[in-house]
Amino acid sequence: MRLHTRLVALVSGLGVLLGTAGVTVGSAQETRIGGVTGHAAAGKKVYRRYCILCHGPDGDGNGENAQWIDPKPRDFTLGVFKCRSTPTGTLPTDEDLFNAMSRGFVTTNMPPWLPLSRQNRADVVAYIKSFSPKWKTTKAGTPITIPQEPALTIESIRHGRELYQKMECWKCHGAKGHGDGPSAATLTDNRDLPIRPYDFSTGSRFMCGVTNRDLYKIFMTGLDGTPMPSFADDIKPAEGWDLVHFLRTLQPLDTPELAMWRAWLATHAGELKPIGPAGPGQ
């Protein structure tokens, strides 16, 4: 009797232990970001405090406030993310998600969550990854290689302008980068929701960062889930930097690119043909 009850207790205890372990394994999604390990269970708590009203309890972007927000909050269940260091069509790295959350998204309701501790942010990344089954079956993509930025030259800016014409960037972003190209009004995202092209003349930051490298990444990886494609197969890596240099001249910032461009325009403006359907852009 005594042995029997001990056996029952032992088996019960093991059952509880295994059950608990099973639960733990099932939900223990982790991220590694720098020296920080993020845990989905802890991330859920943080998510409920900060994110749930927009992204929703199920991560599908249907939170209480989603109806009021434009553009709509990200639907994590699709496993599609705009800002990545990885090729188009692949999952982002943990760092990509971490950086996106820290940086926020300019011209949207997504604020920079930089004041949160790194642990909190890493935990949320782990939890966000639990919303889509993609993360269980697919590995994150390998970050693209970004070549060293060449020295800024007027030739680079001019070539970038040619590419802006040739790759038909103007169709969405407009001839002056105001986001008012002929296709702008027709654009939709992967949820068939209207989406506006980036307006270079008003934004002080880009959607996925502030540096030239961030801008380079945007058109070499594309913004998945939006009409912004990847140009990795269409332009050479070095040409990407030319495009970067030209796009910098469209921003309302005192950039070296803009200063050089203005100086050149002062004496060569007449040589330019307008960007648009008729012109070669140069």
């Binding site: 998204f105 300019v106 011209t107 309701n109 604020p111 920079p112 004041p115």
Partner: peptide, 18 residues
């Protein structure tokens, strides 16, 4: 909290150009 403090310090702005 830390996020609210940062929001207040930025002059009640999230800093997302909106």
């Amino acid at each position: 909290n830390a996020f609210g403090q940062a929001f207040r310090d930025r002059g009640y702005q999230l800093g997302n150009d909106r």
